[in-house]
Design a protein around this nucleic acid. Structure first.
Lengths: 337, 337
DNA sequence: TTGAAAGCGGTACCAC
DNA sequence: GTGGTACCGCTTTCAA
């Protein structure tokens, strides 16, 4: 049971290797008869083309590098599934690179991908990485690359992002309608995501004749449950005259909700709460969370599609693709009658 | 700015390609002087070895195929991170294959991996797939393969699994101490996981002088939130003389918890509830869930390690590695005074 | 210590 | 329509 190659088949069929190659690749000018015969033999021998050899001459690997900061957290899985969905169809495979928010790993993976000669790269740059990534732009410019979630040089690279400002706007609009007193904003670390969401939020409130003062805005250092609890505790120790909170991530919203409950503040009766992301399980919470849904699967799908287009068209102009979030109203926001 | 190959360097250094190759690979019998000189040139030219070409002659790709039924659900991410952790260290890359529980995709990916000539495979067989996978065993026997979570031919392949029976036992023991009335079991579809967990659960109850009748065992068709809700509704319509439930998955436990709450049955005051998995967010629930934790990260880490061992040692004997789960007591189970 | 040459398994050009 | 053959970029004998 040794490996069967084109040569093996050629010998058995008593034809040349090139004929075999062409037959198997359905090349037009080959006698259908021969084609059929050869395919038959190939099947019988259980022939499997050696992708490596093919990759070498075709100069492409059918491999796509996907660089993300983490997998945990329920947000990335859906994106990955969206990607997979389109990749499998086109016979590309995903090479997973999880940087774990470490600069060192990001560097490591980037050079790995350049070495591995992947056909394309999808990367969500972490804030800290933006500096680091500059080192690779010369490489990246020679290989189809898509940046996602966080915008990066949209003039040079295709970006597939979510309209965070719109998301903030939706949250603001909704809370403005549900609340009578002050409405608070809880962001993560100041940066792309939080700033954009805050901006839209503010616009919406103003449009509804509400205001959002400096003191109504709170920021955490990380988008975590603990950070949410902590900031909620701080808020509660300071003021009571609010009945709405927009948290810039579902995970933080969960922390906030937990803290409120411990202080006997009911959601949504006393305080309306809106999150951001629409993680798969927030609909299963005791009080299902109203939230701004990012189109996670679609994100993956769209960027996969765009990347493949770029790979196949050899060269193409960078696009800025902005996907729209949607508001999903569940039970953490009060319904005005 | 064209690609630099060994040849480029050879011409500049005025030596043969093989000398360059050997120098760059630190081959022993090459003059340290030449070596240094060549390495210098390579660096200046920003030479990057073409992994594809190397792969072809070395007949290995540094790629590992990972076949799992889904990524969503928070269980797999941790496993993947455990894997990545060890793979990056050893310079292997993960080729992600998400089958989405579809037989067709499983088939597709398996043949893809065989084609792609990955150096090793890690696979969690889904129940339905076990039949399908038989078709590939001839291939798999020629390539280091590890099966995980669900046991599969431990005589032929290394298996890295979790002691599900022990997990069930821990849950049983704990509930037996917390409860005074009947204790119920809610499993997923009958099969490896559910059966093992039930077995251990039963043993524990019996050891504590409790019994578990047929009617106390319920089974769902899927490990989902909805299934949990549904089964809880059924249970509630039938009997009231219970004060403990062991659900064979956290997600189902969440559904059960939700349904109980809607019927004004308090957890843990009225009913103690134990889950299985320890998904990252169950500690953040309104009533943090007592659950049997699977060592997710460790799972990934261990199987990564074992696989690499197998790859490097060329041949090795199959091992059956069983990791132990632990009980994490949180607030969904009543504490007896 | 070095280098020429033979592949690895395909693809594709160009004669026939 | 078919097949011989020259690569792709690298590793690895083996002879010099």
């Amino acid at each position: 049971m040794k490996k069967v190659t084109l040569k093996t088949i050629a010998e058995i069929a008593e034809v040349g290797v090139s004929t075999v190659s062409m037959s198997l690749n359905d090349h037009p000018n080959i006698n259908p008869e021969t084609k059929k015969r050869i395919k038959q033999i190939a099947k019988e021998l259980n022939y499997v083309p050696n992708i490596i050899a093919r990759a070498m001459v075709r100069k492409q690997t059918s491999l796509i590098g996907v660089v993300i900061p983490q997998i945990e957290g329920s947000f990335y899985p859906s994106i990955l599934e969206g990607l997979e969905d389109i990749f499998t169809e086109k016979l590309f495979s995903t090479v997973l690179c999880v940087t774990n928010h470490s600069q060192e790993k990001e560097h490591f993976y980037m050079s790995l991908l350049c070495d591995k000669h992947v056909d394309g790269i999808i990367i969500e740059p972490s804030r800290e990485f933006i500096g680091e990534i500059e080192n690779f732009t010369p490489y990246l410019e020679k290989i189809p690359t898509i940046f996602t979630l966080q915008q990066y040089k949209p003039d040079s690279f295709t970006n597939v992002i979510v309209n965070n400002e719109k998301g903030g706007f939706l949250a603001g609009e909704h809370l403005a309608e549900a609340c009578e007193e002050r409405i608070l904003f809880v962001g993560g670390p100041k940066g792309w995501y939080t700033n954009q969401r805050l901006k839209g939020f503010q616009v919406a409130l103003e449009k509804k004749g509400r205001s959002l003062s400096q003191e109504d805005c709170h920021f955490t250092t990380r988008y975590t449950y603990e950070a949410g609890r902590k900031v909620a505790a701080e808020i509660l120790s300071q003021k009571q005259d609010f009945d709405g909170i927009f948290a810039a991530s579902d995970i933080m919203a969960m922390g906030i909700m937990h803290e409120l409950r411990e202080k006997n503040i009911r959601v949504p009766e006393d305080v309306s709460l809106v999150g951001f992301d629409d993680l798969p399980f927030v609909s299963m919470l005791e009080v299902p969370l109203t939230t701004v849904a990012q189109p996670q699967f679609e994100l993956g799908n769209v960027m996969g599609q765009k990347l493949i287009e770029q790979i196949e068209e050899y060269h193409s102009t960078p696009e800025l693709i902005v996907l729209e979030p949607t508001l999903i109203v569940r039970q953490s926001t009060r319904k005005r009658i």
